[in-house]
């Protein structure tokens, strides 16, 4: 299970790259592995404002639907439209496949760094 060291993670297995007041989000290697072959990504509209934990979009594999929950409070500034036609990129390159970029005012205080997230994954799988 690949966990990238410069990212933060949520309990729902989104990854977050924080750069100033910009947060870039995707789903972790663990999340894509759990979902299986991803065949559909539903993106939010640019300009949408969300609170922490709100649904930002949806990732669907052949067998499951999974919401992407926002790790921050703020406004969507960009979405990765390339994923609409190549959703399988989320499987092959989960950390290269960002889904949304947000300008944020607040971030989830429960975000985990890579070390804590690795432990969290181990616990989840006892």
């Amino acid at each position: 299970m690949n966990v990238k060291s410069d990212l933060f993670y949520t309990k729902d297995h989104e990854w977050v790259l924080i750069n100033g007041d910009t947060a870039t989000m995707g789903i972790s290697d663990h999340a894509q592995g759990q979902l299986g072959d991803i065949v559909f990504v539903e993106l939010p509209e640019v300009g949408k404002t969300v609170k922490i934990g709100d649904t930002l979009g949806v990732v669907e594999s052949t067998k499951a639907v999974s919401d992407i929950f926002s790790a921050v409070e703020g406004t969507v500034t960009d979405v990765n439209t390339a994923l609409t036609n190549t959703p399988d990129k989320v499987n092959s390159d989960p950390y290269g496949s960002w889904i949304v970029k947000m300008k944020f005012t607040k971030k989830n205080p429960e975000l985990m760094d890579a070390k804590v997230y690795s432990e969290y994954l181990k616990e989840e799988h006892h």
Partner: peptide, 11 residues
């Protein structure tokens, strides 16, 4: 098992 090598590959 829900899948082995991947659902689409198995399909």
């Amino acid at each position: 098992p829900v899948e082995f090598s991947g659902l689409i590959n198995e399909h």
